[in-house]
Amino acid sequence: MSSPAVEHHHSEDQGHVVSLGLLAGVWLALLVLTVVTVGAIYVNLGKLNLWLAMIIATIKALLVAVYFMHLRWDRPFNAYILVGSLIFVLLFIGFVMMDTAAYLPEIDFKDTLHP
């Protein structure tokens, strides 16, 4: 990974020690992004609001995963697991949404006949 090699043979068994400054920086960034998330709902972007919120949430999630969860200094395979499971989540949600959206008319049709 992109981490400085120096950190690694620091100690064979110790893993990477993240500097306190970096942790605090990430913490502050997360707090700022929370404020941004809340603030973003006052800007009316229509459907984009949802996507904006999701993008901010994803940035926050990435910060947590990469720095707090040490993924940056970890074996890449652990990151693959995270990404892989997210891909399966998307497949699951994607397929189900595709189908439910397509059969929605049958449900609405029933609703109009039997309100």
Partner: peptide, 8 residues
């Protein structure tokens, strides 16, 4: 046959 859409 469950009512899943034809697309799916």
């Amino acid at each position: 046959t469950s009512g899943q859409s034809s697309l799916a």
